[in-house]
Design a protein around this nucleic acid. Structure first.
Lengths: 246, 246
DNA sequence: CCCGCCTATTTCTCTGACAAATCGTGCAAT
DNA sequence: ATTGCACGATTTGTCAGAGAAATAGGCGGG
């Protein structure tokens, strides 16, 4: 009887890219979570293929394909005789969407979340700046539509957060920089998980939709300086909304 | 007789993370290159498992593990009945070290290289700024050592470029931001390949080691503003050294 | 025209076997 | 005592074949 690790529960974000519908996928998921949450530490040896497959009643094939996935993301390294070892943290592809998602299935450290906000504060204002210069009318229309949705539902709702994601995504597309897009969409997804799990009540209630509108107008006016400033405000606000107890 | 795709030649950078010593690794490499260079386009279906394995005389197992690797990097998606399809470019993990390396086995487009420099110009100055605030004595010692090596060998030599990489790596470590590290080390590697393949003669000869020293001193003085400025200079210089015919 | 069943195709999983790589050991030569 | 080398044990890597599961597309009934 198959006896895989119990599922981690209802903390599903719906943003996972690796489908877990297949066995190799769920093994990769479970092992990946165990690695990034520190149950397996760098240098540790994963169970051998025979051992693992017999204990969990899956085939070596499925386990091996899972290890390939982890290896592709830099989490492990396999060699004959020594087995499959967890690699040093510096080698991990921390910006891989799956790795990041696995991080957030545990309780990411305060330092890591701080790092992500820091990175976001570096990336997104520049993206907004580029978007203000390069955006097309179609980009602007998408942002406007997302803005309407945010206004209609409010940022506290699921639909509102979705519209927020769409808004940011439109900005990134408008930046016309492919690597920047993949990077920033990953980061904003991670940050949104942070928001979901660690959000606290805002001390000074302020209209976040209005803040987004400021950014929208700056981009519409092709004003990169204002766009950067508006994005800085947005990110700072989000950061202040998160319990980090710095 | 095994009859894999002919190797792409002597353009080895020595920075590849995925070992190609195994069959599944070289299949993933070859297919990955074919995908990112556009031989297979988004929406195209990769050869079926039976077909591929028979034509190239490898086992289905090896081919499947290769596809797992590509799938983990967001390049393809497999489903029963429809086969394995190349995904849209937006889904590719462009910042995965392997994907980036595969890009540079072809002739990356001018736009893509421009994007990378743009990203580097966004990331590295901020990293230098953080490093100026957070660096330890050990960090500084490493940078100093790398600087000496650069001065001894000159930036035109292999050893010099290696020291340059070390210098930048030390700065990133000093920034104390893990995601930033993985990102920036990837980017600088990519940019260094660009430099190798597309470098042109500098019009106004200028001492690059001296420019690095300015950055080093700024970080030593814990002066984030000067550090940012120095890094901006360095990146701009590198960009001007690259044939982009903007 | 729409909905559910059926079928063909493809990936997915499993099994068992052998090949290849590599680390450690122990022996031999210096 | 140290160095070098062959060898054996262990683990991953590769292969072949069979069946299970999923799914797109066609077919038929309502």
């Amino acid at each position: 009887m198959r006896q895989r690790k119990e599922q981690t529960g209802p903390r599903t974000t719906g943003l996972n890219t690796t489908s877990m519908k297949r066995i190799h996928g769920s093994i990769a998921h479970d092992l990946g979570v165990d690695i990034v949450t520190g149950i397996y530490k760098p240098g540790d040896t994963l169970p051998g293929e025979i051992e693992f497959s017999e204990q969990l009643d899956v085939s070596r094939t499925a386990y091996r394909e899972a290890v390939r996935i982890l290896s592709a993301k830099g989490l492990v390294e396999s060699r004959p005789r020594t087995g499959t070892r967890v690699t040093e943290k510096e080698r991990w592809n921390l910006l891989d969407p799956d790795v990041l998602a696995w991080m957030f299935e545990g309780e990411p450290s305060v330092e890591f979340i701080r790092d992500l906000f820091e990175l976001r504060m570096i990336i997104e204002p520049s993206a907004a700046e580029l978007a203000a210069v390069r955006r097309s009318g179609a980009d602007l229309a998408r942002m406007g539509h997302a803005l309407e949705e945010m206004a209609r539902h409010g940022l506290a709702t699921e639909a509102g957060r979705e519209a927020d994601q769409l808004f940011h995504h439109a900005i990134l597309e408008a930046s016309r920089n492919a690597p920047l897009m993949t990077l920033s969409s990953t980061i904003s997804a991670a940050v949104s998980w942070t928001t979901i799990f660690k959000q606290r009540k805002r001390k000074l209630p302020r209209d976040p939709v209005a803040d987004h509108r400021v950014l929208y107008e700056a981009i519409g006016n092709s004003d990169p300086v204002a766009a950067r400033a508006a994005m800085v405000d947005l990110v700072r606000l989000a950061q202040e909304d998160t319990e980090l107890s710095l």
